[in-house]
């Protein structure tokens, strides 16, 4: 069978799931800066699918690709700790402000340069919940896509995917290359591997290196260097990036304000509950 060369797409996102009290401002809105940055959960599911294919076919090569600011190098380290072969941080100020389409354009250029035959991404990122980047990248690459995957296998040079329908399950088969997006119903990702953690603890990008003084470690162990690609490395057209490359614009942002309304309090006893039910029947809410 053909050797699998996989790119896993992963994003660093603010943890919007557990907005604790400390992340709330006095006016009841969320202080986005106060949210911790995490590995997007469904991208973790995607990573696990790639790692399982590598478990089964050890000659598989996995590259984790992330687009974001410098600190998103964390995503690549998390990948290395779990068994990916290498990582690329796509980072440039010119990417800032990109909507899903401009992001997909940038990612698709980086993918073309890596030349994988399988691309696996999470279904969606928790900060936007759009589920658009996977399909938009597949279209830019002009390859088929399989979304909402639950499990992926590889047989006779074909990728076989079990995927979720709105009200059922479907099994499909595709030749390579193909792009797959993985949902949260897939297996959760393995923990970091202790040996790999030791090995890649000092992995860093050129920019991070400038802030540190452990140059010598990288010189001795080139595998610790995480590649950083900018606009010029992927030959991107500036006009198709950032705000100018984004058909969608944000016109307005409103913070959700949690307002209290007067509610009637009832205690857990028969008399009070009985009275409430009579009232609800009389005003035709029930009955």
């Amino acid at each position: 069978m053909k050797k699998l060369k996989i790119v896993v797409l992963a994003k660093q996102v603010p943890d919007t799931r557990n907005v604790g009290k400390d992340a709330m401002k006095a006016d009841g809105t969320v202080n986005r800066g106060a949210l911790p940055a995490i590995f997007n959960p469904e991208d973790m599911n995607a990573l696990e699918q790639a790692l399982q294919l590598k478990d089964k076919y050890p000659d598989t090569e996995i590259t984790i690709l992330t687009m974001g600011p410098g600190r998103a190098a964390d995503i690549i380290r998390e990948g290395l700790y779990r068994g990916v072969d290498n990582g690329i941080l796509l980072t440039d100020r010119k990417f800032a402000g990109s909507d899903t389409l401009a992001t997909s354009y940038a990612l698709s250029l980086a993918i073309k340069k890596i030349e994988p035959n399988l691309i696996i991404a999470g279904r969606q990122a928790i900060d936007g919940d759009t589920a658009q980047v996977g399909p938009q990248v597949a279209e830019k690459l002009n390859i088929p896509q399989i979304t909402y995957a639950e499990s992926i296998s590889y047989q006779n040079n074909n990728i076989i995917v079990k995927r979720r329908l709105d009200n059922g399950i479907e099994t499909v088969q595709s030749p390579l290359p193909v792009l797959i997006t993985v949902g949260s119903s897939a297996t959760i990702c393995r923990a970091r591997n202790a040996k790999l953690l030791m090995k890649f603890k000092h992995a860093c990008t050129q920019s991070e290196l400038q802030e540190k003084s452990n140059d010598y470690i990288i010189q001795q162990r080139p595998y610790l260097k995480i590649s950083e690609w900018g606009v010029d490395d992927v030959d991107a057209d500036d006009k198709l990036l950032g705000l100018s490359g984004s058909p969608t614009k944000v016109k307005k942002i409103e913070n959700v304000v949690f307002t209290a309304k007067e509610s009637k309090i009832i205690n857990d006893n028969e008399a009070e509950i009985n009275e409430l039910i009579i009232e609800l029947i009389e005003n035709h809410t029930i009955g």
Binding site: P14, K252, E254
Partner: peptide, 9 residues
């Protein structure tokens, strides 16, 4: 943003 903002696009 996990439902914490409402955006008009």
């Amino acid at each position: 943003f996990g439902g914490n903002i409402i955006a008009t696009i």
